[in-house]
């Protein structure tokens, strides 16, 4: 029973992983790609790890999977933030459909 619930969670995680990587291909510029992939891939991999925890219970594998979830939730947004900042500072322009860009005006001064 536990194993079936874990496998359902894993399927949800795999689907979100796929959407994240599809967004990496389809979106037009760096920032939108970062949006899609950082959100979807983080939640997808955490879903896979949580499914692993549900499958194995409180064994060595399950506890380490929980630690891995905490670690990924703490570090993935930080690296996405750093990459977005680095892309702006290295001078990558946002794509053509961008409505407003208040950050470039700030760092030009």
């Amino acid at each position: 029973m536990n194993e079936n619930i874990g496998i359902i969670l894993m399927v949800i995680g795999l689907v979100f992983d796929f959407f994240g990587c599809l967004g990496l291909i389809r979106f037009p510029d760096v920032y939108t790609r970062l949006q899609a992939s950082a959100k979807c891939v983080t939640l997808g991999t955490c879903g896979i790890l949580f499914g692993l925890f549900v499958c194995t219970g409180f064994t060595a594998t399950g506890i380490k999977a929980l630690l891995c979830i905490a670690f990924i939730f703490l570090t993935a947004p930080v690296s996405a933030h750093a990459l977005a900042r680095g892309a702006y500072r290295s001078g990558v322009k946002p794509c053509e459909g961008t409505i407003v860009d208040q950050y470039s005006e700030t760092i030009k001064k």
Partner: peptide, 17 residues
């Protein structure tokens, strides 16, 4: 985000605020 990714016309209006 998944809905926006699979949509045929990509309904995005990005911006930095």
């Amino acid at each position: 985000v998944a809905w926006r990714v699979v949509h045929p016309t990509l309904p995005i209006r990005p911006g930095t605020i």
